[in-house]
């Protein structure tokens, strides 16, 4: 039985500490999976976060041990993992483009109109950190949707919110994140 399955079962039993244990496991799994896939995939193929997460889920949890409640935990943790992975990726790419000398993207130097998609991810992440302090629920919706690739229905199930609330939080979050970013540039 895999470690992940054990953790998920622990979560299922209501052991709160187990949730914290999940993230590094999921993170490693996703990394491993992404790397392993490369051997077979053509260049130019795109990697959908959702697909990756689904795949990780399918590989790590055998069919007999599925528990849909734990699936929600898994996807939440996977979204966080994806966030880290994607932010790392964006930083690396951004750095490559801007020359090796610069250790980290200096957000203050960016002109908003000229940002690359990767820059946008970094800017969004930065703003998201602010939003997490101000409105954790709204920020969580962003993490699940934006980084985890979950749809509204899945987010609603995952967070125990109504679909309508998810729609509202997402709409408002987009406006707020953009406003913060814009205010700085």
């Amino acid at each position: 039985m895999s470690e992940i399955t054990l953790v998920l079962q622990a979560i299922g039993r209501g052991e709160s500490k187990a949730s914290e244990d999940l993230l590094p496991l999921v993170y490693d799994a996703l990394r491993r999976l992404a790397g392993a896939r490369m051997a077979h995939e053509a260049a130019g193929q795109t990697l959908q976060p959702t697909a990756l997460v689904h795949e990780a889920w399918l590989q790590l949890v055998s069919a007999g041990e599925r528990s849909w409640q734990n699936r929600a935990h898994f996807f939440g943790a996977a979204a966080d993992a994806m966030r880290r992975i994607l932010i790392d990726k964006a930083r690396r790419k951004s750095r490559l483009k801007r020359g090796a000398g610069q250790a980290r993207l200096d957000i203050d130097d960016l002109e908003l109109a000229q940002t690359t998609p990767d820059d946008n991810v970094l800017l969004i992440n930065e703003a998201l950190e602010k939003l997490e302090r101000e409105d954790p629920e709204q920020a969580r919706v962003v993490v699940l949707k934006f980084f985890g690739g979950l749809n509204n229905q899945e987010v609603a199930e995952n967070m125990g919110l109504s679909l309508r609330t998810v729609e509202r939080q997402w709409a408002c979050a987009k406006g707020r994140l953009f406003r913060w970013v814009r205010a700085q540039h």
């Binding site: 992404a34 790397g35 795109t46 959908q48 976060p49 690396r92 946008n120 934006f146 987009k174 953009f178």
Partner: peptide, 27 residues
């Protein structure tokens, strides 16, 4: 804002080389 977020999302779909640069083989 929609455009900004969509642009960000597009980055998440970029080629997988980001995960394992240099590993890509021919089509």
């Amino acid at each position: 804002a929609e455009h900004f977020i969509a642009k960000g999302r597009a980055a998440l779909h970029l080629p997988t080389e980001a995960f394992a640069s240099g590993m890509a083989t021919g089509a």
